[in-house]
């Protein structure tokens, strides 16, 4: 299935009138939205609503990471630090400058996007493990900076970040917050789809595979690297902001360590690096497994380490890859059948 859409030829939809094409394109999203709207009623208690919010925030993070790492092939370990930047920026905007959540969220998202562009600059000259080291260094310095800056709570933590207000009512309830997080997550997924299915996504994949050949095809490699870092940072910033304003509105640098980054990587690797659904599937599964194994905290790290190793060994393209293979096999079988019939 890869990320291309139409089955052989691209002419399959030729006869479809424009209006029905539009609805066919948007109907699944609408259906998904309605399903997600109703989801809180299907879950028994507020803890599940809380976990839903965590899942969706992780989805936003993982989708962003998948864009820069899976599609553009830039090995970054700094994504979690960008989430921290978004979270603290949003917290400062809201708690210190008194901006409402609805302003702080986009402001923090844009701010993180700008920081993301800065983080992307080393990628002009560095690749692979060296880029990973550079981004790791940047990520750690963000954490250290937070840890020593009294203005944002230093190592004691940034507390009393105001919740969003909706028509004068504060949104501290997990269900209410879900209705803020969910549309944002869905819109985030939708944007990622549009980006990755368009020429931008193709250019990302081209520069992941071969920057020189991409340049020879007219792809401005630096611009697209920066674009990938910036887009993923926008996702991280949005997710960070959502973390900050979720009850009880408390942030601490300990929540943005390399362990969290590895968990995030696990989501993307398990879901399928460079697969359009990779981030979503991975984030949902990992967050749920993480929650289900909460009681077995002694073994949690061992479980997750094993899953990473096994995935990389036996399922290098993740769950997304498995699904792709399934569809590809089916398509080949169909083609063969068609040929046999024709003959």
């Amino acid at each position: 299935m890869k990320d291309t859409s139409t089955p052989t030829g691209g002419t399959a939809q030729q006869g479809v009138p424009a209006g029905s094409r539009f609805s066919r394109r948007h109907l699944p999203w609408l259906a998904g939205f309605v399903a997600l709207l109703l989801l809180p009623w299907a879950t028994p208690n507020a803890y599940h609503h809380y976990i839903l919010n965590i899942i969706l925030i992780n989805v936003i993070l993982a989708v962003g990471l998948n864009i820069v790492k899976g599609f553009a092939g830039q090995v970054t370990v700094g994504h979690i630090a960008l989430a921290a930047v978004g979270a603290y920026a949003s917290a400062v905007f809201a708690a210190k400058f008194g901006l409402p959540f609805w302003v702080a969220l986009p402001a923090a998202t844009l701010f993180t996007g700008m920081i993301g562009a800065l983080v992307g600059i080393p990628s002009f000259r560095l690749e692979g493990a060296y880029l990973a080291l550079a981004t790791l260094g940047l990520a750690e310095s963000v954490r250290v900076f937070i840890g020593v800056t009294d203005y944002i709570g230093a190592a004691i933590g940034f507390s009393d970040i105001p919740p969003p207000y909706f028509f004068g009512r504060s949104v501290v309830d997990h269900v209410a917050y879900y209705y803020i997080v969910m549309p944002l997550a869905l819109v985030g997924i939708y944007f990622s789809f549009c980006i990755l299915r368009s020429d931008i996504g193709r250019s990302f994949k081209a520069l992941r595979e071969d920057p020189l050949a991409a340049a020879a095809c007219g792809v401005n490699v630096r611009k697209y690297k920066l674009l990938a870092f910036t887009i993923s940072a926008l996702y991280a910033g949005c997710a960070g902001s959502l973390q900050a304003h979720m009850a009880p509105g408390f942030l601490h640098p300990n929540s943005y360590t390399i362990t969290e980054m590895v968990t995030l990587l696990l989501m993307v690797v398990l879901g399928g690096l460079g697969h359009i659904w990779g981030g979503v599937v991975g984030a949902v599964i990992v967050t749920i497994i993480y929650d289900l194994t909460r009681d077995y905290y002694q073994y949690q790290m061992a479980i997750f380490g094993t899953v990473i190793v096994l995935t990389v060994l036996y399922m290098p393209r993740g769950i997304g890859g498995l699904i792709d293979n399934y569809f590809a096999t089916r398509r080949f079988v169909a083609i063969r059948k068609a040929k046999a019939n024709a003959a």
Binding site: K2, T4, G10, D199, R202, S203, K205, A206, E209, D210, L212, A213, A214, A216, C217, V219, G274
Partner: peptide, 14 residues
Amino acid sequence: RIFTQMTVLENLLI
């Protein structure tokens, strides 16, 4: 230097 992980059509689109 063709893009081996992309489809044939995608190579052209690039």
